[in-house]
Design a protein around this nucleic acid. Structure first.
Length: 456
RNA sequence: GUGGUUGUAGCUCAGUUGGUUAGAGCGCCUGAUUGUGGUUCAGGAGGUCGUCGGUUCGAGACCGAUCUUCCACCCCA
């Protein structure tokens, strides 16, 4: 079947069942975002290249989908650039638009562009697809949705507190028990690097540290050595490789390590503040934890760092993450605008809910009742009932053709429709409907009012 | 971007060192059953073996390219 049509790699079609389930998650997110006072915005699928390029590092630039200019774009290219075959330079000349790579940079652009209309602090949420020219892997696609909530224009740590509560509210609503919100702080990481005399190697240090649960202590040490961090420095920082205890106990250990680091102490204070407030307010299902190894290649996070781990026993990486960036909008010329935000990993949450069987039947049901079509007169009789049922909020429909009964029944069965109505001449004469429960096989004759009552 | 891996019916997969007409299960269609689906029984349809090229008397199998799948790295949600 060579001629079979296909979709680009890393993209997906969603079946009706999948869309219903995704919508269930998205609706839960949207409800809670709004409950917490976040306002929805949307931005275009594509931006000017200049808005996106250079914001995600060299690696990021490579992964941005570029959109070819319209018209005879090659004809306008500088001859020297064309003959040189320098892809980077050529790209700039033949493409001036690119697909959205994440929601954060467009949001920063939005804030700067509309700064005079926005009332600060501004809290927005945004649920839209983004695109990356990455090589697909399990759970990694070239088109996927991001579900972000961010707050700009406030340095208050109460924002961080609210985000922990937001995670708690969402995962509680989804019935997902046992998730852990892991927190860290960029200032602690800076402090650690400083304390061991490797302040200049902060990024290498954190990237290596972040891999602890993946490659183990030995692997991390090896990578740090390879990056030029001294053995002595590594020995000093080793206690954090296997810290245990609760949030406060871990903080105490850090206090010793970071006693001489101003920035480190600041980070500890921030985390302690957040932990105290959360402890006083209480959480329903989420556990708040401190994870010093949390670093997630986040060059732009300056304060809090969040990551959400799925319940233990579920083989799944993080299902959410976020953090604070003090200079969110600086790249677009608006200084001193601090932002903090979190993201929910829709696809991964979907996989976790599916694995644990947590999608509620109710939220994903389609049509509840199908009327079997026996002919012209009977259809009209049925359609009158359909109208009343729909007014009563009951999803119902009439099979469009007077096809063989077997075909219609089988259709109801395959679509998982729980009830069918058989209404032929007999029922019409008596003004009743034969209602059949497809699960139990039970059949009863009811009038319209009873029919509505039976399905409500 | 680097290294590997996968592709045979709608789906999941067999297919011997290269040898007639490529199979199974499930699904699909028809009938048993003209007012009863899901179960059962009988029958049937459906494949240029991802694509293009090469080796060979002969290729689903071997070689090359390309696309696709999945995995590791890089990076990331």
């Amino acid at each position: 079947m060579a001629q079979k049509p296909s979709i680009p790699k890393g993209t997906r079609d969603f079946s009706p069942e999948e869309v219903l389930r995704r919508n269930y998650i998205i609706n839960t997110l949207r409800t809670n975002f709004e409950l917490f006072g976040f306002q929805p915005i949307e931005t275009p699928s594509f931006e000017n290249s200049s808005t996106l390029m250079g914001k995600y590092g060299d690696e990021g630039d490579r992964l941005i989908f570029k959109i070819l200019n319209s018209g005879d774009y090659l004809n306008k290219v500088d001859d020297a650039v064309y003959t040189a075959k320098d892809s980077t330079k050529l790209t700039a000349e033949i493409s001036e638009k690119a697909l959205r790579y994440d929601l954060t940079v467009p949001f920063a652009r939005y804030v700067v562009q509309h700064q005079n209309e926005i009332e600060f602090p501004f809290k927005r949420y945004q649920i839209q697809p983004v695109w990356r020219a990455d090589r697909p892997q399990k759970g990694r696609f070239r088109e996927f949705f991001q579900c972000d909530a961010d707050a700009v224009g406030s340095d208050s740590l109460l924002q961080e507190v609210a985000f922990v509560q937001l995670y708690d509210a969402v995962f509680t609503d989804l019935g997902l028990k046992g998730t852990t919100v892991k927190m860290n702080n960029r200032k602690i990481l800076s402090g650690l690097a400083e304390a061991i005399g490797a302040a200049d190697k902060l990024i290498d240090f954190t990237v290596a540290l972040d891999k602890l649960d993946k490659i183990g202590e030995e692997g991390v040490v090896k990578e740090m050595l390879a990056k030029g961090i001294s053995e002595e420095a590594i020995t000093r920082v080793k206690p954090i490789f296997n810290v245990s205890g609760n949030f406060a106990e871990k903080l105490n250990l850090l206090k010793d390590l970071l006693a001489d680091s101003e920035v480190g102490k600041e980070g500890i204070e921030e985390l302690a503040y957040i932990n105290e407030k959360i402890a006083a307010l209480g959480l329903a299902t989420v556990t708040l934890d401190l994870d010093v190894t949390l670093a997630r290649g986040l060059n732009y996070y300056t304060g809090a760092i969040f990551e959400v781990a799925a319940p233990e026993g579920v083989k799944m990486g993080s299902i959410g993450g976020g953090g604070r960036y003090d200079d969110l909008t600086g790249i677009f010329g608006l200084k001193n605008m601090s932002g903090v935000g979190i993201s929910f990993g829709l696809d991964r949450i979907y996989l976790v809910l599916e694995e644990l069987g947590l999608f509620p039947e109710q939220a994903i049901k389609g049509t509840k009742l199908l009327f079997i079509n026996f002919g012209e007169a009977e259809s009209l009789y049925c359609l009158k009932a359909v109208k009343s049922l729909r007014e009563a909020g009951i999803t119902s429909e009439l099979y469009p053709d007077a096809a063989k009964m077997k075909k219609q029944m089988s259709h109801a069965d395959k679509r998982n429709i729980q009830f069918v109505v058989l209404a032929g001449t007999q029922e019409m004469e008596e003004g009743v409907y034969t209602l059949k429960n497809m699960k139990t096989g039970d059949q009863t004759r009811v009038d319209l009012n009873e029919l509505i009552k039976a399905l409500a």
